[in-house]
């Protein structure tokens, strides 16, 4: 894939060639492209002199890394303990139903992707949903529709 050569190059050149660079490189790659593509793994493999298997092994171990493209907006539902006891799970289900996707997927029009996270650390405001950088506390099933309308 030609178009990604340049940006990958500019990411890689910031890092020394050592195993410790792998996770920060993956993080920068995901930041730039929204996900880790097979092409990116191949480039990193050549740069760090690690096999693609090794890279995929590390990347798939950490929940932060995703292997499919992101939507224009990313919804993250907190399933921390405080959110769980305040029906965070039911909220996630309602979002799945509303968006007609499963957790970890992206809507067909590319507008939203949906993820669950173990804890966002805003437990006192449970249940919490994050859309892109914005955190919404005291969420409820009935607030979903209106909230999503704010994001095009």
């Amino acid at each position: 894939m030609e178009p990604m050569r340049e940006p990958m190059q500019s990411i890689l050149k910031e890092f020394p060639v050592e195993a410790g660079s792998l996770i920060p490189i993956l993080q920068k790659t995901q930041e730039a492209f929204g996900y880790i593509s097979p092409q990116a793994v191949e480039r990193i493999s050549r740069f760090l002199k690690l096999t693609e298997n090794e890279i995929f092994g590390v990347a798939s171990f950490y929940s932060q890394f995703r292997f499919i493209p992101k939507g224009r907006h990313s919804i993250t539902v907190c399933l921390g303990t405080a959110c769980h006891v305040r029906s965070g799970g039911i909220l996630l289900e309602a979002l799945e139903r509303h968006l007609e996707i499963q957790t970890g997927e992206c809507t067909a029009d590319g507008r939203f992707d949906l993820e669950a996270v173990a804890c966002l650390g805003c437990c006192a405001l449970a249940p919490v949903v994050k859309i892109d950088g914005d955190i919404y506390g005291n969420m409820a099933v009935i607030k979903i529709k209106e909230l999503l309308e704010k994001y095009e």
Binding site: A19, G20, I23, P24, Y62, F65, V117
Partner: peptide, 21 residues
Amino acid sequence: KEGAGAFVCGEETALIQSIEG
């Protein structure tokens, strides 16, 4: 060093592994 979302990395030997890539 930013973690990448693995609870077990709070365990110190796992944390070291993670920093080592």
